[in-house]
C-alpha cells in the first residue's frame, strides 16, 4: 500500500465512523510518513508498520458510555425529590415519636419519685398508704427503665434507617449520572453483642420487676383497703 492509498483508506474509514477533525488526524499520519521516508523506509514498509487503516480508524471512536444520561438524570432527580419529601416526613414522624417516648419516660420517673418521697403537687398523686405508694413507685421506675431501653433502641434504629436512606439517595443520583456507587447500608442497626446483651438484660429485668410490683401492689392495696376495687375506698377519681 502506498502512502496515498493508506491515507485515502484511513480518511474514508474515519468518515464512516463519524470522526471529527479528519485533517488533524491525517496530518499526523502524513508527518509519520515524512519522518520515516526521511529515514529511508519505503512507503509500503511504512504503511505496513502503521497497521490496518480500518483497524486504526476504529480506534479513533471514543468509547461511548456517556449517552442519553441527561434526560434520564432529570427524571431521577425529580423522582428523588418526591422520595425525599415522603421519607423526610416519615423520619420526622419517627423523630417526634422518639421525643414523645422520651417525655413519657421522664414523666414515669418523676411519678415514681413523687410516690417514693410522698410529694404531691395539686393533689395529682392520689392518696394511698405509704407501703402501696412505695410498691407502685417501683413499678413506675421499672416502666421508666423499660421505656428508656425502647427509646435507646428506637433512636439507634431510626439513625440507621436515615443513614441507609441517605446512602440510597446518593447511590441513585450517582447511578443516574454514570458515576460509581457505594455499597448500600443495611436497614437494621448493626449493634455490638455487648450492647445487645445489655439492652436485653435491661428489658427483661425491668419487665419482670414491673410485672411483679404491679401484681403485688394490686394485691397489697386490695388487702389494705379491704376491697378489690381499692381506688373507690381511697376516693380516687372523685373530685
Amino acid at each position: 500500500m502506498t502512502k496515498n492509498e493508506f491515507l485515502l483508506q484511513l480518511k474514508n474509514e474515519l468518515k464512516k465512523n463519524n470522526i471529527s477533525d479528519l485533517d488533524d488526524i491525517l496530518s499526523e499520519y502524513e508527518q509519520h510518513f515524512a519522518f520515516k521516508l526521511a529515514d529511508g523506509y519505503s512507503e509500503e514498509e511504512i504503511a505496513a508498520k502503521l497497521g490496518d487503516p480500518t483497524e486504526l480508524a476504529s480506534q479513533f471512536i471514543p468509547n461511548a458510555p456517556e449517552k442519553k444520561h441527561g434526560g434520564r438524570k432529570l427524571v431521577t432527580v425529580i423522582g428523588m425529590v418526591f422520595a425525599d419529601l415522603f421519607a423526610g416526613a416519615f423520619f420526622l414522624m419517627l423523630f417526634i415519636f422518639a421525643v414523645v417516648m422520651g417525655i413519657v419516660t421522664v414523666a414515669a420517673a418523676i411519678i415514681g419519685i413523687c410516690l417514693l418521697g410522698g410529694f404531691s403537687f395539686n393533689n395529682i398523686i392520689p392518696g394511698m398508704p405509704y407501703l402501696c405508694a412505695f410498691i407502685f413507685s417501683i413499678s413506675f421506675f421499672a416502666f421508666a427503665l423499660l421505656s428508656t431501653a425502647a427509646c435507646l433502641y428506637f433512636v439507634v434504629f431510626t439513625r440507621q434507617l436515615i443513614r441507609s436512606y441517605k446512602r440510597f439517595h446518593i447511590n441513585v443520583l450517582a447511578g443516574s449520572s454514570g458515576k460509581a456507587t457505594l455499597p448500600s447500608l443495611p436497614v437494621y442497626p448493626l449493634l455490638s453483642h455487648k450492647f445487645k446483651r445489655r439492652l436485653r438484660m435491661l428489658v427483661l429485668s425491668s419487665l419482670t420487676v414491673l410485672a411483679v410490683s404491679l401484681v403485688s401492689g394490686y394485691i397489697i392495696s386490695a388487702i389494705t383497703a379491704g376491697n378489690l376495687e381499692f381506688w373507690h375506698v381511697w376516693g380516687w377519681f372523685v373530685k
Binding site: I25, D52, L56, Q59, P62
Partner: peptide
C-alpha cells in the same frame, strides 16, 4: 505494536 496505534491514544488523551 503497530506504529499507527499511538495517534488514537494521543487523541483520546487530548479529548
Amino acid at each position: 505494536i503497530a506504529d499507527g496505534t499511538v495517534y488514537p491514544i494521543l487523541r483520546k488523551l487530548k479529548s
